[in-house]
Design a protein around this nucleic acid. Structure first.
Length: 551
RNA sequence: ACGCCUGUGGCGCAACUGGAUAGCGCACUAGAUUCCGAUUCUAGCGGUUAGGGGUUCGAGUCCCCUCAGGCGUACCA
């Protein structure tokens, strides 16, 4: 059993025994103090019970401490501190015991059951299939993927979904743009639409079509031609998105096409509209159908069906979200660009209006990324003159650095991506610093001059304060993963890694693992290094960064 | 004009989601070390958490007002 859980249980029982009350929900909080001198763990339960028990926190803490001590052999020391904290200092053996546990669990170390099998659907990236993914998408993609990894490691049943907006005007524009470029290829003129796509990748697709099909579309029926170019363009753009996400290490399980909701005579959409109509949520005005979203917190009502009879973007997306729940996912997470933030309220209003409980849909917004090189903002790719793509970013700074950088800063804040730093191959670059720690561990474990690690149950020789501190961090890793999953903040993982490797590098320089005169200590330290390397590798994996054996 | 997000030492970020003396890296100053893989360690400097008020045992964190920056306010998607 995890030590923090054990402490929580013992404290809860002590409250029961000493005060003969059930500790209220949320009152027994076990945390790790900021100041290491306070102890390894602490609980603020005495302060939280002060009101209920009509006693001072110090009195409560003092009354509990003996009972806790009696039932907690894992603690070397249990003390009370102002204004009523109960602090726990763990016995070294508790820490060293985690070594074999980590080695036994291997790649699974860090997994926990916080999610308890709860089904959760994460929709992210969801870029329009009209062009290449750029750096803004990279932030969204890496963050969402890391969130999914955290959920998966914490026992949630996750579906990773990409919503493909393939039914709107932008696809018509894509088709028209392709037709225009196709004509251009054969030396003929066809107007590029005003909102058309000018980027080179669209041109390349047009050339591909020209090479595959020849000039047969020049004289074809225009609506048939447009449909063909729309389909072809969409497919090829999606193939590129898929390819780039794979390059970036991002896995998508489910590609949900907007057009699906238009199938079978808009069966799903109409079902939604009927439900909304029956609930009295809609009205007709100026020839359009409106959703009374103002009744649910929106600042204006929203159009569902435009006066020309076509649907607004919102309508199939409501059906999309309803369909997610109907597929058995009661909890939905969306990760959108900050430019969509006004859309959050209306989507939540729609779900609320349809009777889904609050909290069904959580939307996180990803703020903007500015690319900075040599202290100056880089707006455009030097090679293409267009927005910098994920692919270029990966080629330029590498997948690991790209992912690390975008995940290490909270998604809700504006970020500057320091290209210069990301490219550096020295300790100023946090990715390099972290990966280098893993390489060092690997190099120790495979050093031919050191006798390979032999399994043991005895780690009593490990007493270096840095070793014990590292062990404590290692033992807390599964708890951290579970907590971070719930708040969806993978930047906490990169932070953990940084603190961990900083301590490791320091340890490496102060304490030699290899002591030829002391094979017992050497072997115990090898076990420790092995467990440390497993923890570090698993932590890096959670944010999609590799753990290289050699650099 | 309104709405949402952000504001923490010179710079980049934390603060366990309301807990203890607001931490860490870079930079800067002084000293030590140079040994498994590119050094690392110790100490110091630096803060009225944008400003003001409130809530309570306790606020960087929650509420209100002001200021600054970003984004948004379509019968576009």
């Amino acid at each position: 059993m995890r030590v923090d859980k054990k402490i929580e249980q013992v404290v809860r029982e002590a409250v029961q025994t000493v005060f003969e009350i059930e500790a209220p929900e949320g009152s027994v909080v076990v945390e790790t103090p900021k100041d290491k001198n306070m102890g390894d763990y602490a609980t603020s339960v005495a302060m939280r019970l002060a009101k209920v028990l009509h006693k001072s926190p110090m009195d409560i803490a003092n009354a509990l401490v003996d009972e806790i001590k009696k039932n907690l052999p894992e603690a070397k020391d249990v003390t009370v501190a102002n204004p009523g904290f109960i602090n726990f200092k763990l016995a070294d053996i508790v820490l060293t015991a985690t070594i074999n546990q980590i080695i036994a669990e291997g790649d699974n170390y860090g997994k926990n059951n916080t999610g308890a099998g709860k089904k959760i659907l994460v929709e992210w990236v969801s870029a329009n299939p009209t062009g290449d993914l750029h750096v803004g998408h990279a932030r969204n993609a890496a963050w969402g993927d890391a969130v999914c990894r955290l959920y998966e490691a914490s026992g949630y049943d996750v579906l990773r979904e990409f919503y493909v907006n393939d039914a709107g005007n932008q696809i018509v524009n894509l088709g028209e743009s392709l037709v225009s470029r196709y004509f251009e290829y054969f030396g003929k003129e066809y107007p590029l639409p005003e909102d058309g796509y000018h980027a080179d990748d669209v041109k390349e697709i047009a050339i591909e079509i020209a090479k595959e099909d020849g000039d047969k579309w020049l004289d074809a029926d225009s609506s048939e031609r447009l449909q063909y170019f729309m389909d072809k363009g969409k497919t090829k753009e999606l193939e590129k998105i898929d390819r780039d996400l794979k390059l970036f290490g991002v896995r998508i399980d489910s590609w949900m096409h907007e057009t699906v909701f238009y199938e079978n005579d808009k069966e799903r959409i109409n079902a939604c509209l009927n439900r909304m109509d029956e609930l009295g949520l809609t009205y007709e005005k100026d020839g359009a159908l409106w959703f009374k979203s103002t009744d649910y917190g929106d600042d204006k009502d929203r159009v569902l069906r435009k006066s020309d009879g076509t649907l607004s973007y919102l309508t199939p997306d409501i059906a999309n979200h309803v369909y997610k729940v109907e597929r058995g996912y009661p909890t939905l997470i969306d990760l959108w660009g900050a430019d969509h933030h006004s859309y959050v309220t209306r989507m939540q209003a729609a779900l609320k209006a349809l009777g889904y409980p609050d909290g069904t849909l959580t939307v996180d917004l990803t703020q903007m990324v500015r690319m900075v090189e040599d202290g100056k903002e880089v707006k455009m790719s030097k090679r293409t003159g267009n927005a910098i793509t994920i692919r270029e970013l990966c080629e330029d700074v590498g997948v690991d650095a790209a992912r690390w950088f975008v995940v290490s800063k909270d998604i809700g804040t504006h970020m500057d991506f320091d290209i210069t730093l990301a490219k550096q191959k020295d300790n100023n670059n946090p990715v390099y610093y972290a990966q280098y720690a893993y390489s060092r561990m690997y190099s120790i474990l495979t050093n031919p001059d050191i006798k390979p690690f032999e399994e043991t149950d005895d780690y009593s020789r490990l007493s270096d304060p840095k070793e014990l501190q590292l062990l404590k961090m290692m033992s807390e890793f599964p708890k951290l993963v579970g907590e971070v999953a719930q708040i969806r903040k993978p930047n906490k993982i990169t932070e953990y890694i940084m603190n961990f490797v900083k301590l490791f590098h320091s340890y490496y320089n102060s304490s030699h693992v290899n002591n030829p005169d002391d094979p017992e200590l050497t072997n115990q330290r090898l076990g420790f290094i092995k467990a440390a390397s497993i923890t570090l590798k698993n932590a890096l994996n959670l944010v999609g960064v590799s753990a290289p054996e050699k650099m």
